[in-house]
Write a protein that binds this DNA or RNA. Structure first.
Lengths: 175, 175
DNA sequence: TAACGTTACGTAGTTCGTAATTATG
DNA sequence: CATAATTACGAACTACGTAACGTTA
């Protein structure tokens, strides 16, 4: 049983019509038909009676409909509760880093950063070693410096210096 | 988000260890790692902190764990209710239970039972603690005994003992 | 260095869409 | 015969397993 099947089922049950449900779900009608069939096969119960005018829930289908809606609602709640927990930082930043860093550590660092701060879009710029410190002082850059296993980030949407530590592959951002 | 991911997540969260969870789930460990990662990516939240000793739920992970379990339980109930409808059990039964049970657990249990077995009418009787075991032996009663978090039902329309387990608000009836 | 998690990549199984077919009022 | 559902089949996608790698106590 899959979420997709539950969503398909619920839509079909509401419209009592595979063709229209397929349109609303933006899926081909045979694909929808197949998924409903798979669901029925797994449950071992026929959920709809088919006819040339459309479909209609069986008694078992009516019972299942209640549970399907509850399940989908519960899943949405779970998802939202986790999402709502994430760090509310939003914005975009540009990261300036030495070429050597860009080619070695940066990809993984950004991947980790991206998981921790999904609301922040990151752009990458490359800077020369001799200009590195100068760039660090420019407030409209996020500059990135690796020293002693620690990353210092100067970000531009607030005049503030953040420290980005990598501890056990986890990225911790502190002000 | 898929049911498989929720089941994987719950198992990992319980064991705090990807390798052992993979064994129990009978799936290769990298596959499990990948699914957890996909889930985290979709939610936009890191669910586990990784280390060389295993994994540990983040705060967001703890929140999501609750919702994931609820969702899985609800899905199982939906599935069973549809399946149970196939289970054409019909009839009426009388449930005998201690007054304390009648006033506390019984309402929810009967509600769940009613969804699972819509064809069965239930009547409630109250019995005294000192007569409880005697009633249990009478074949024309459904008697209900709570012990070790498990409900045993002795039902009368077949000479058979069913076991009714409540696992996370879900009612499982086994013979 | 042992235990554990991640990355890389080829394979197998699933879902989808298009087109043809069947069924019914 | 018009409307709606099913079957057939090839293409695209995704999860999986194996193997190699990275990390930390």
């Amino acid at each position: 049983m899959e979420f997709r099947q539950l969503a398909y089922f619920v839509e079909v049950a509401r419209l009592n019509n595979l063709t229209r449900a397929a349109e609303r779900l933006k899926v081909a009608q045979p694909a929808l038909s197949q998924q409903i069939r798979n669901l029925e096969r797994e449950l071992g119960v026929r959920l709809f009676n088919r006819s040339a005018r459309g479909v209609a829930l069986t008694e078992a289908g009516k019972i299942f409909f209640i549970g399907a809606e509850k399940t989908l609602a519960e899943a949405e709640r779970a998802k939202d509760s986790a999402k709502g927990f994430n760090n509310q930082l939003r914005g975009k930043v540009t990261v300036g880093a030495l070429e050597s860093v860009v080619q070695t550590r940066l990809p993984r660092m950004l991947a980790t950063f991206g998981i921790e701060y999904p609301g922040i879009k990151v752009f990458i710029g490359r800077i020369q070693p001799d200009r590195f410190l100068r760039h660090l002082r420019r407030a409209n850059w996020i500059s990135l410096l690796h020293m002693n296993g620690m990353i210092n980030i100067f970000h531009s949407w607030k005049i503030q210096i953040l420290r980005l530590e990598f501890v056990r592959n986890r990225c911790i951002m502190t002000s």
